[in-house]
Design a protein around this nucleic acid. Structure first.
Lengths: 328, 328
DNA sequence: CTGAAAGCGCTTACAG
DNA sequence: CTGAAAGCGCTTACAG
């Protein structure tokens, strides 16, 4: 149906061989300036574009990175997506975007990634079963878990240091004189929520400070509802640590609704430092995830492994920082 | 480097021809149940995946849709992205995600799309020069502008009916008794902002109601700052229509900061109906864009044109609806 | 229903 | 520096 312009067409018009046309478009190949000029002129006239598929077929490598995302609702992820796409563009890579509904990447999505023979894969905010992960390994496709850790070893993951962060958060809140805490967890099957809980609780236990854990789901509505439930249960803690910012915003709005003053009556702290945390309407004190650094490290690793596959695994943890605003 | 398992390998193990292996994986081809079983078993054992690149090369069509986005910061777009990806997955298509910084799609990004010989392209929240658009036409690649109109004809675009919407918004506000209006525009080079301004102003002119136009940029900070500027200029209109929700939220927060009560002192209405508009903290009255319908129509058109390219152009406008909450 | 063979548009040794 | 030729992993007429 589609009438593609091929290197052969260009070669004919330019009066050179098809190999020469190829060389003009292949980085690192040598062509004389004269040939190049002829080819470029002919290509321009015909509207030629080298076919990436033919190229990938023969070189046996692609310039595609598979980017898998789950939580597109959380404003944290659009930022991540944007940073990845622009960074990869600079490296000459394109991104194949895969959206998954589930916490675990489905086999069907993996098939797609494998069929396209992607150069590398980033799994954001989701995990996958070990057997599926092994599929990538068998195909020597480098894989990074971004903001999520796999409990089974041997894989590369890039996270914020959640354990340290939540310890710091606990110490900070204690330093502010709070005597009674709540932690609102995200989805319990996520490593981030588990670690944030663990570090937080660890310090509270050490200090003998009472606390309660509320189970939620990393959404605004979840945070809102949880705060309401707290109040209905007659429990207003001196400080609440929400597993992420978007829940913290829900908590603040629920408190506001019930005329509970933040930080006067109770303190609220979040995690991520999404744009909205800085909005004057909220002024949320939070722990900032070093996205830029995390993205950078992810790409660095991926490029190394694409260059030479080693299947190197490691749980990389990058330190974030406290951002003080008005809710503590 | 990478040792791919090919159809040939599977054929050898299964004791059939390579053609038979191909037929098992190609929809619509006929194979006996016995052959299929043998092939599937062998494929499973070897971990075979058909190479999409070889497939595309021979069929001369791809299962990739190029999705171009600009405004990933606006929460409106993650929703759009998610809907597109899931809908395309159902149709067996994958999405190549392209992020552009500029209002106009850069040639470099177009090259990528062309090199991958994408089956279709969606341009979201951005436009492109006519010469670039012609590149797609020359390659018979269907193209849709989503939420943006090209002033030059002949292209397909899917938008909310912005003109009607803003007329309705004006009538609604007038009906609420407001006597003095402001419109806060988004980036002036966008068709959406121009049309929303036009429809709004049209009704106000007809009714002889005074108004002012404030130039802004579709961001929260822009809305916030504009509202502050209004007040500093000594102008508190009876109602402000913000070109999108995210600006409206900024306006509300600025008013709140200055102790101006919404909707008591002034009314605020937005456009989009992003998730946050419904948050209890804001309760923003707004005009809802029918995203689901818009996505559906876009995909419908694209699939038709992929099936048989006609290069059919049209500015499709879909009616949205008013969502009344607490700011008017 | 199945297999042998041609060919999709490229890259890349190999000669010259 | 350039061209002729092989080959990447598939699909698809064409016979049988």
């Amino acid at each position: 149906m589609k009438q593609m312009v091929t290197a052969k067409d260009v070669a004919k018009l330019a009066g050179v061989s098809q190999s020469s046309v190829s060389r003009v478009y292949f980085e690192g190949a040598k062509v004389s300036a004269k040939t190049r000029a002829k080819v470029l002129a002919a290509a321009e006239e015909l509207g030629y574009h080298p076919n990436e598929f033919a190229r990938s077929l023969i070189t046996n490598r692609t310039k595609i990175i598979g980017l898998v995302m789950k939580g597109v609702q959380n404003p944290f992820y659009p930022q991540v997506l944007k940073q990845f796409t622009t960074a990869f563009k600079k490296q000459g890579y394109s991104v194949l975007f895969v959206h998954t509904q589930n916490e675990e990447l489905q086999r069907e999505d993996v098939e797609t990634l494998l069929n396209y023979n992607v150069a590398g894969v980033i799994i954001t905010d989701a995990t996958m079963s070990l057997t599926v992960a092994e599929d990538f390994r068998a195909n020597r496709i480098p894989l990074v878990f971004f903001n999520r850790k796999l409990n089974t070893g041997g894989f590369y993951s890039v996270c914020c240091n959640n354990l340290n962060a939540s310890r710091e958060v606990a110490r900070y809140l204690i330093g502010k004189g709070a005597k009674d805490f709540a932690y609102i967890s995200g989805n319990s099957d996520t490593s981030t929520s588990r670690e944030r809980e663990e570090g937080f609780v660890e310090i509270l236990e050490q200090s003998g400070i009472p606390y309660r854990i509320y189970q939620s789901d990393y959404t605004y509505e979840g945070g809102y509802q949880t705060a309401l439930n707290m109040l209905e249960g007659g429990h207003l803690p001196a400080a609440v640590f929400a597993g992420n910012d978007i829940m913290a915003l829900g908590v603040i709005d629920a408190f506001r609704k019930k005329s509970i003053h933040v930080p006067g009556d109770t303190k609220v702290i979040g995690f991520d430092n999404i744009d909205m945390a800085g909005w004057p309407g909220y002024g949320l004190t939070t722990w900032e995830q070093p996205i830029e650094k995390m993205v950078e490290e992810t790409i660095h690793y991926l490029m190394d492994e694409i260059e030479e596959y080693k299947g190197f695994g490691r749980a990389l943890e990058i330190e974030g920082r406290l951002v003080e605003r008005e809710t503590v």
